[in-house]
Amino acid sequence: MTESPLDLSRRGSRLFGGGGQGQARGAALSTASTIVVLAVLAALFLLAPGSAAVRHTFFSPPDMWHALIGDPAKGYYSVGAAIWLNIRMFLAAEAIIVVLALLLAVIRQSTGPVLLPLRVVALGYVDVFRGVPTILVVYAVGFGLPALNLTVVSTQDPAVYGVLGLVLSYSAYVCEVFRAGINSVPLAQVSAARSLGLTQPQAMRYVILPQAVRTVIPPLLNDFISLQKDTALVSVLGAIEANRAAEIYSSTVFTYSSFVVAALLFLILTIPLARFTDHLIARDRRRRLAGATI
């Protein structure tokens, strides 16, 4: 009772092998073991019979460099520039997905009889777009909408259709993530809010959702990591994003090094988000450990 949460977190970290001298020795050990593992893997790769050929087709430094910066004169795009399209696509998609998924989740969690038709629509939406492979949704949107021959709707850039396809698919997943978050808020919180005279929507807005959103941030970011990679699917519509640029380079120069460049660029985007997610999960865990004792 008298113990501050700080004391506790210090004791907690010692429990898991951190703290003082032990920490320094632990760091040395983990560095050593990492070097050994990497060395063994490198040796295996270099000693393999096909090593030279693989290095030439996948890891040729000049090809990787040329694929990265591109050369319009020779007819291939810069993979490094094309990744900007992926970035723009996932940023746009993420913003729309959060709003749409939250709306879907709130509709699916509603109870009023008036909203029944909306609930049915939301349920159908989630079932369909969660069940159909993302690439098929991207195809359907990217080839279907232009085929309709409408103004505006049928004359967009392939990237726009790609974003739309990703939004349709991912908002169905993220809706369920939000719903799990809403369900994780204890019913007693609803009772407390309603007993203050708050209406059901007010209780949702001020009490349930803020708590739900906090718990869903890690799984949400996890889905976003997946989404960032899946922007590569838009290449099937002919948008020149990183994967498509790598493909063009590869078919002109007959090397796979351009794909390795694209892969590395995707890693540069997803790894920081993965570490950030880990950080949030760890922080959440510390909070809960601290909160539990008071």
Binding site: Q189, A192, A193, S195, L196, G197, L198
Partner: peptide, 28 residues
């Protein structure tokens, strides 16, 4: 009608002050 529960049921994401003002501000 005010009600107080066995398990307090304060809103964990709000400060004490916000917990108290939520009802008056939003409902009243």
């Amino acid at each position: 009608i005010g009600i107080v529960f066995q398990s307090y049921n304060l809103f964990p994401h709000m400060t004490v002050l916000k917990n108290i003002t939520l009802g008056p501000v939003k409902a009243l």
